[in-house]
Design a protein around this nucleic acid. Structure first.
Length: 193
DNA sequence: GTTCTAGAAC
DNA sequence: GTTCTAGAAC
């Protein structure tokens, strides 16, 4: 069996299959199974690989690829993100935080709404952890403030990115410093009892 | 972003 | 020998 033939076969069966993984949020935005809430300007979807008990994404219908494409004209849109975040929190029992990844992997601007327990089988790597628990995670309020003050978001350097991703593991709820990911995940369970 | 897996770490 | 991490993916 020639495995090189398989992608072509899959493509012909499903022509709408995205060309690249980084575009897959665009499909999720249209998938009724993923959509939690939808308004004229925004869509809320469940993250396909949640990193906590609650993990949603808020995205605009407008074709904005990332926070680095934002300008002063988008202040109202980002304020709408905040209103939606507020509504979601009102409906949830878990305490949620909202923010953007400094260097996102997926196209289409998206804000993470994630509970602080960080208990999920999809949370596997140090990069996952540091993406939500270090300064790589840009809190909603900070992004809105920067956009209002500067009319744009300052790009994080790749040096800062590298440094933050290699930050030693540190519990987000206490001073515990686990040796590895399995130890961290075991520890997190003790906070949720 | 995930999956897979070689080889480092234990 | 097993667990765990980190880099390639054509």
């Amino acid at each position: 069996m020639n495995k090189r033939l398989l992608p072509a076969v899959q493509q012909s069966i499903n022509p709408k299959k995205p060309k690249h993984w980084s575009l897959s949020l665009l499909d999720s935005m249209k998938d009724p199974d993923s959509i939690v809430k939808s308004t004229e300007k925004l869509v809320v979807i469940r993250d396909k690989y949640p990193k906590a008990k609650v993990h949603y994404l808020i995205l605009p219908h407008e074709e904005i690829s990332s926070i680095y494409k934002l300008n002063h004209s988008h202040v109202k849109l980002i304020e709408d993100f905040g209103q939606m975040y507020k509504k979601i929190q009102e409906d949830e029992d878990y305490s949620l935080k909202a923010g953007f990844h400094a260097i996102p992997s997926m196209q289409r601007l998206h804000m993470h709404i994630i509970s602080t327990d960080m208990i999920s089988p999809c949370l596997k790597t140090k990069i996952h952890w540091n993406s939500f628990t270090t300064e790589f995670f840009l809190p909603y309020d900070d992004v809105l403030r920067e956009l209002k003050e500067n009319g744009s978001i300052q790009k994080m350097t790749s040096e800062s990115h590298k440094k933050l991703m290699s930050t030693e593991l540190q519990c987000n709820q206490c001073s515990y410093k686990p040796k590895n990911m399995p130890q961290l995940k075991e520890h997190l369970r003790s906070h949720s009892i």
